[in-house]
């Protein structure tokens, strides 16, 4: 028995875990972790080519199988709408005709400053509107502000991706009630609209807890790449995503203050 599939933009996905490609000690380890995670989508950043010292001529794409994975280019490291749009277009250009899937979508990340790495809402919305006009399917990294998430959906985002907590902080979902309200508001009369928790995950239980809230997917990077044993953590994240989703679909029992016996009262020998 498996959980239902997820549709984001043009893609139908069986896996609800999206993983990053950063911070790995080697490209071989990244490849192994991608495999263990069961992810079908991996996100990549756009940077200047290192013109002289080229990492022994190895390109990250040589370690990502185009048959197995869809690339999700991101605009990580951008601090205003202009930079976001420029980087998104460069990512699309790189994927067009490359044999990889993913040219038609982008993860929009527009940051406020380098210390908090929190999303900058004004630049995010501005960049989103430009990218939507340009035909991109945009997955938007944003804060867990309910009204901002609504404005982002209204502006045509393919998915809204509130942060659980700051990027790489490992604090998990700090405000589950905000995520609950976002889910209610964005999925009202539109139950398949994708809401994804992006950033902040520390360990498998954070992923399971996020999925149990009813988010459609989780995007993470550091929790796997910086774990003591990344491949083992990748597998844990895969299991947590699946079990959290199944638990959400199964429907949990209500919380109660007092006990309810599991065994029948009738027929006790001491009755």
């Amino acid at each position: 028995m498996t959980s239902t599939t997820l549709k984001i933009g043009p893609y139908e996905l069986q896996s609800r875990l999206i993983v990053g490609t950063g911070k790995y000690s080697s490209l071989e380890l990244m490849q192994k972790c991608h495999h263990e995670s069961g992810a079908q989508v991996v996100t990549v950043a756009v940077r200047r080519e290192r013109l002289l010292d080229k990492n022994s001529g190895r390109n990250i794409l040589d370690f990502i199988d185009p048959q197995k994975y869809i690339l999700l280019p991101n605009t990580a490291g951008c601090f205003n709408a202009e930079e976001v749009v420029r980087v998104a277009k460069l990512g699309r250009e790189m994927l067009t005709g490359s044999g990889y899937r993913g040219a038609d979508w982008v993860k929009l990340e527009c940051l406020g400053d380098t210390k908090t790495l929190l999303p900058e809402p004004v630049g995010t919305l501005e960049a989103l509107k430009t990218l939507v006009k340009d035909g991109f399917q945009v997955l938007v990294y944003c804060s867990d502000d309910v009204m901002l998430c609504k404005r982002i959906k209204e502006a045509g985002a393919a998915a809204v991706m509130p942060a659980g907590s700051p990027i790489g902080s490992g604090q998990g979902v700090l405000n589950p009630n905000a995520i609950r309200i976002i889910l209610e508001q964005l999925k009202e009369n539109d139950p398949t609209y994708p809401v994804i928790v992006d950033a902040g995950v520390g360990t498998a239980s954070d992923v399971a807890a996020a999925m149990e809230l009813g988010v459609d997917a989780v995007l993470l990077n550091t929790a796997v790449a910086a774990a003591a044993e990344p491949a083992k953590m990748a597998r844990a994240m895969m299991l947590a995503t699946e079990s959290g989703r199944l638990a959400y679909e199964a429907g949990r029992i209500p919380r109660k203050l007092y006990a309810t016996a599991s065994s029948p009262w009738e027929g006790r020998i001491n009755a």
Partner: peptide, 10 residues
């Protein structure tokens, strides 16, 4: 001229 490529990121 800017020449860019994909690198690891999240």
């Amino acid at each position: 001229v800017e020449i860019v490529t994909f690198v690891g990121g999240g």
